[in-house]
């Protein structure tokens, strides 16, 4: 499977999983999904991107849908008032999206970090070997030999 295809599959799966969790009130599934994304994607930069996108999508989609159905204005203004930001309807929307992004991002970062440590552990021969090979190629002393 190509890296691009794997990225897309993991991302779509992550969004769906995260959305399902939130619908059930399990908002932390966004974070857990991020962890899974981090573990699943090999390259370090792709995991946080996918995690952030999945969080963004999962936490934005219901807002977009609600806005289409009955309008977010009164609700957003009410939440802003409760937060002490009277009249600033955009703040709750932005905060909601940020929370989603942060959960996805942090989860995927954690997942990627775990993967990084686990795959480079001394007890993991294959990964150790890859590391040795790269070191040998780049080591000028060994090249001289």
């Amino acid at each position: 499977m190509s890296a691009r295809r794997r990225f897309a599959l993991v991302l779509v799966g992550g969004i769906l999983l995260s959305l399902s969790g939130m619908f059930l009130g399990l908002w932390w599934v966004t974070f857990a999904t991020g962890v899974a994304i981090g573990l699943a994607l090999p390259r370090t930069w792709t995991a946080p991107v996918a995690g952030a996108i999945s969080g963004l999508a999962a936490w934005s989609e219901p807002l977009i849908e609600a806005n289409a159905q009955y309008g977010l204005g009164p609700t957003s203004l009410s939440i802003a008032a409760i937060m002490g930001a009277n009249g600033a309807a955009l703040i709750p929307i932005a905060l909601t999206v940020i929370v989603g992004v942060l959960l996805g991002l942090a989860g995927s970062w954690l997942g990627a970090a775990i993967r990084g440590v686990a795959l480079n552990s001394p007890r993991s021969g294959a990964v150790e070997k890859l590391g040795d090979q790269r070191l040998e190629v780049k080591d000028p002393v060994l090249t001289q030999r």
């Binding site: 939130m22 219901p62 009410s78 905060l95």
Partner: peptide, 20 residues
Amino acid sequence: ALGPAFNPETGAWTMGADAA
């Protein structure tokens, strides 16, 4: 608690769904 409070499906945003 940011998670349950801002969960668009079950948090404070459900005020809108209730009103509808």
